[in-house]
Amino acid sequence: MKTENTVWHDQHISKTQRAELKQQKPCLLWYTGLSGSGKSTIANAVDALLFQRGCHTYLLDGDNVRHGLNGDLGFSDNDRVENIRRISEVAKLFTDAGLIVSTAFISPFAADRAMAAEKLAAGEFIEVYIDTPISVCEQRDPKGLYKKARAGEIKDFTGIDSAYDVPEAPAIHVKTAELSVLECAQQIVDYLLEYGFVK
């Protein structure tokens, strides 16, 4: 539901001006994949490489955001949709500031990822599929979540009893079971270099 009696207030400094000051093209790297696939690990590695290049970035991590902004949401399908809606709005604000933004969320539903893409200018949404077999994710299980899900202690767990829509045509397809963290991160940075987001 839209808030009533509000009017959009234009700002004097444009998105283009902010990006030019930072000498980069703003974009949103949208990392998606199963729990334990390596989304946060790869996103952090990319962020570090971009920082070394003098880029202006920000990383929105799924668990971290649920400690604050989305602390009132659970993991039902409806809550997952609202989780992604809020993150999409925050990420849009950050790209408006001229930043290269990363979001590391499972974001299991293709429709939600499409909704996030629609909020941005053409070419700014970059879907990064962290493609890791569920067997590998379960072996890693860094938070012990798969073990709890298999024991029935966690409901609506993606890949176990909740669906994950595999991206059909991601801009970047990363296979963490075949490459090192640094190789995965460099693959993403190379994409940003190729398409002129960073110099």
Rank of each mutant, 00 (worst) to 15 (best):
K148A: 13
T132Y: 00
D141N: 14
E118P: 03
R113I: 13
K92C: 11
A121I: 13
P142F: 04
K143Y: 03
A122N: 12
V128Q: 02
A91W: 01
N78L: 08
K143C: 08
A97T: 01
T103Y: 05
A117K: 14
A117F: 00
S76F: 15
S162C: 12
P142R: 01
V65H: 03
D79N: 09
A149M: 06
D72M: 07
A151C: 09
F94W: 10
N70P: 08
A116S: 14
R150N: 09
G123R: 04
D161H: 02
P133N: 07
G71D: 06
S135A: 14
A111K: 15
N83M: 12
F75W: 11
F157W: 02
I100P: 01
E127R: 00
D141L: 07
N70T: 06
A122M: 09
E153K: 12
F94R: 03
A149R: 04
K147G: 09
D77Q: 12
I130M: 13
I106P: 01
V81R: 11
H67T: 13
Y146K: 06
R85V: 08
A151I: 07
E124W: 01
L93F: 14
Y129R: 00
A91C: 14
S76M: 14
I154Q: 10
T95G: 05
R85S: 08
A97C: 14
F157N: 01
E89A: 15
A122G: 02
R113H: 11
L73T: 06
F105G: 02
G74H: 13
E124F: 05
P108D: 04
V81N: 08
L73V: 10
A104Y: 03
E127C: 08
Y146I: 04
Q139F: 03
I160W: 02
F125I: 11
P133L: 10
A117I: 02
L145E: 07
A114F: 04
N70M: 11
A121P: 00
F125C: 11
F75R: 02
D77N: 09
D112Y: 00
G144N: 08
A121D: 13
S88L: 12
V65C: 09
A110W: 03
T158Q: 00
D96T: 05
I130N: 02
